[in-house]
Design a protein around this nucleic acid. Structure first.
Lengths: 217, 217
DNA sequence: GCCGAACCGTAACGTACGGTACGGCTGTTG
DNA sequence: CAACAGCCGTACCGTACGTTACGGTTCGGC
């Protein structure tokens, strides 16, 4: 919860030059995997290693700053919970599903999650927590109000928003993320993602849609 | 598909001493994270580094052998698809769900998946493919016959077994694996797993159960 | 124009670790 | 017993990389 606004603060305290350096590090991370050496970052960013150490302390600091910098960039437009009919709710859910699939299948997300998973394997769990906070938990924070609004409007029926969210998460992501992280080729075209978003939303509504009137499949 | 029987061959060509060494490596992997140095393995297994290199070639060979050795150990009892009524199908699905949750939440699985994800980030994707083949794809191979039998018996209704499997996978695993890999504490007690298995199975049946007669929730 | 701060490029240092070599011990074979 | 193979323990080598140090350059302030 503290991390939620921490990432906002971070993007403020950075100079343009520092942001450019972090962008270079991010690009390098995506391209080269975790062979992210300080020398490579310095060369790519056209800065000296001395500067890297002065700004970010050590390698972990640079890694953390890079992840948080990326996290601060992907601020998804919040969905307005104004239209409370079934059509708009469906559209919102499909939008969430589609956005999420695009995120987790992006090269950036895969690279970041890989380095965070590796990091969590070693002692310090900083990166894992940051990625989790800006990924899965941020998604929950944005989606839950929509679910609650849907319940308020009599469109959804669930006891616990957290449980409902996790089911939606599972229906959307399925095995995609773990397969991508493990190196499985898995071409997710725009069309595939769109279809999956619709399917997941329909399944979710079938499970949690309010039983008012006949439920058309 | 070739990897499917490769892991069977491997457990045969190993001497008892070699298995003991791999067990030591596996324990070290679980305890120490990816700080798996050749020296540490040699010390833990009370063998010389020279022997490690003679038997496994290089560090990657040792890692791969360790992962395959673990994979060859977790051969889950196949479910018999004989009882074709709803009760036994439900029991089978719950059993699969429960087993899978236990696997992905085990320290061993977490450690192995972490190292495989890291490995996939670096060039070679060997470990990722091995883990995927013995994890997610092995599960699909075992579960699909059950689903097909359920459809044959008129209990399930789906067009594509792969799609149905992936939905089941999503309903069972949800966000558990990624959270654990990223270092999130997530106590999965026996009771929690059992409850989740029942819930996931009920949700799956609600989505894919044949529409014969009124569907009781 | 001069000073100091910030920064670039690069050289240098220390260490960790993958990989190799070798001496010594043990069990086996003839 | 002698010869030998297999293996343990350890010392050693080369390299990659994190980290530090330093000379040279740019630039804002006086």
């Amino acid at each position: 919860m503290l991390l939620a606004n921490a990432d906002i603060d971070n993007s403020q305290g950075l100079t343009e030059r520092q942001k450019a350096v972090l962008d270079a590090a991010l690009r390098l991370l995506v391209e080269e995997g975790d062979q992210l050496t300080m020398t490579a970052v310095a060369r790519r960013a056209s800065c000296s290693k001395e500067t890297l150490y002065k700004w970010f302390g050590d390698r972990d600091g640079l890694l953390t700053a890079t992840v948080q910098w990326q996290a601060s960039k992907v601020r998804v437009a919040p969905v307005d919970g104004k239209g409370l009919d079934l059509a708009s709710l469906t559209a919102s859910l499909e939008r969430f599903a589609s956005d999420w699939l695009k995120v987790i299948s992006s090269d950036t997300s895969i690279a970041l999650n890989r380095v965070a998973v590796s990091h969590a394997g070693s002692g310090k769990d900083n990166l894992g927590a940051v990625v989790l906070e800006n990924g899965r938990f941020a998604l929950a924070r944005r989606l839950k109000p929509v679910l609650e609004a849907g319940r308020q409007a009599g469109l959804l029926d669930f006891a616990d928003a957290e449980t409902a969210f996790r089911t939606f998460f599972g229906l959307v992501a399925r095995d995609v993320q773990i397969r991508l992280l493990l190196g499985d080729r898995l071409e997710l075209t725009e069309a595939t993602i769109g279809g999956d978003a619709v399917r997941a939303t329909q399944q979710f509504l079938a499970l949690f849609g309010a039983k008012t009137g006949p439920q058309g499949l």
